[in-house]
Each structure stands twice: as structure tokens, then as C-alpha cells.
Amino acid sequence: MHIAEGFLPPAHAIAWGAASAPFVVHGVRSLTREVREHPESTLLLGASGAFTFVLSALKLPSVTGSCSHPTGTGLGAILFRPPVMAVLGTITLLFQALLLAHGGLTTLGANVFSMAIAGPWAGYGTYRLLRRFDVPLMVAVFCGAFVADLSTYCVTSVQLALAFPDPGSGFLGALGTFGAVFAVTQIPLAVSEGLLTVLVMRLLVQSSKGELSRLGVLPGRKPDPEGTGTGGPGTDGTGTDGTGTEGTEGTGTDGTGTEAVAR
């Protein structure tokens, strides 16, 4: 859910806004650098932002009387890293607060922290961990999107429990209550979002393989073998003019019949 306008006490709203601000500022720098150095990535950036906007705007009633929705932040986090997703998520939440009455301006900081910061970092961390252990790409993408969605609601539950502790059982009691309310619909939604993200990633693999290679999602072209001589066809650092590649040592002739050391 988006925490509604005016729902949080002013001190909590200010605190979450202050906690979110450094992540968003860092994200603006990362996004600016990405666009400046790779202007061809703007189309994929726009698609990632649109994916987040559309999914998180789907407000689905819950049997518990609350509302749930997908987040769509896992895809952008996997493609462009969480700092960029902090900016895209903030823009999404701002437009939804102004145009769709989802969330609000006073609670923007709290919503940004849960959906645009905590969710993307948790999802991206899960994705990277699985890829490090050679888990297939689509399995890692599914798990990353699933965790990004579910962790958003875990953080939202914490935020609400801190603001409204249970009179008898305090913070833990309220956390259990809010968590149970969201879990009924959010776990199936997280599974659905994971599957949809896999479908989108498959389409991107077919249509944007070069861009995904540059972003590190797909393996790129392997570099030339080390030690290839620049002055001849040898691969062990020797060349006909007595030079080898930088950082390797070899021997060649200098035209006088004597050996010259190449570095």
C-alpha cells in the first residue's frame, strides 16, 4: 500500500523524508551520469520507470479491508542498480500522489523509503547473490522481483507499527497485525510480479541484448587474451620489433642481431 496523505504523525513523516533524501540525491547523480555517458539507455530507463508506474498504480482491494498493489521496482533495480531506481520510484510516487491520490505529499518520504529504496536494494541484493552462485538468469530475476515487492510491504509494516504501536503488545504486536493484513494478498502479488518481470526480461533479452550486455545483465564480449604482442603475431609477448604488450616481458630482435628486452 501507499501510506495515505496525513496518516503518519508529523515527526514520523519528517524523519522518513530525511532518511530518504540522501538516497534520492545519490540516485540523481547516478542517473545523470548514466544518461550523460550512455544516452542510448534513455529508452530503457523510460521503460523501467513506466513499468514501475503502471504496476504500482494497480490498486487491488484486499479481503482484509486494506489495499495492495505490485511495485515494479525489481526490474529497474536489476537493470540500472538501486540508486537509479530511487529516483524513478520517487518520480512515480510523486506523480501518483498528485494525479491519482495514491499516497500523499506528507507521506512521500516514507513511501519512497519503502518502495523506492528498501525494495530495490533488497531485490537487487537477492539477484546479485543468486547470480554469484551461477543461478540461471531468469530464476534470479524472479527472486529479485519477488523480494523487492515483498520487502516493500515488510518495511511499510514497520513504519506503521512504529507510528501506531499496539496499546497492549506495543511495536511487536502492531507489526504482527500489519504484517498479517498485507500478507494475505501481497504474497500472491509478489509471485505474480516476479513472473511478469521474467516475461519482460525475456523480451528484453531478445530485443536489447547489446544493452543488457553493457549493463552486466548478460555476459559481454570477452576481452583479448593478455600478453598479445602489438608488434607481431606472437601471443607470448614477443614481437618482431622488440615490443610486447604493456605490463608483459618478452624478447625480440632489434635489427642488429642482438636481443632486446621488451616491456
Rank of each mutant, 00 (worst) to 15 (best):
G170H: 08
I3K: 00
K209L: 09
R263K: 14
D134P: 03
S213M: 14
L195M: 11
P22G: 08
G247M: 09
E226Q: 11
R29Q: 15
G104V: 03
L137P: 11
L93I: 13
T177R: 14
H69V: 07
A21D: 08
S68C: 09
R36L: 11
V84R: 09
L98P: 01
T90V: 07
P61S: 07
G89Q: 04
H12Q: 12
P165T: 08
R131G: 05
A260I: 12
T156I: 12
P70M: 03
G234T: 11
S169G: 14
G250M: 01
A183C: 06
L75I: 13
H102V: 05
V24S: 05
G170L: 09
G244N: 07
V25P: 06
G76E: 02
S20R: 01
G229N: 15
P219L: 10
P39L: 09
G6I: 06
T71S: 04
A260N: 11
E34N: 09
T248A: 05
C154M: 13
G229C: 15
L94M: 14
F146H: 06
T240M: 15
T42Q: 11
T235S: 13
P225I: 01
V24R: 03
A50Y: 08
L75F: 10
G242F: 01
V63M: 10
C154R: 01
G109P: 03
Y127M: 06
T235L: 15
K59V: 10
F23W: 12
L199I: 13
R132F: 04
A122I: 09
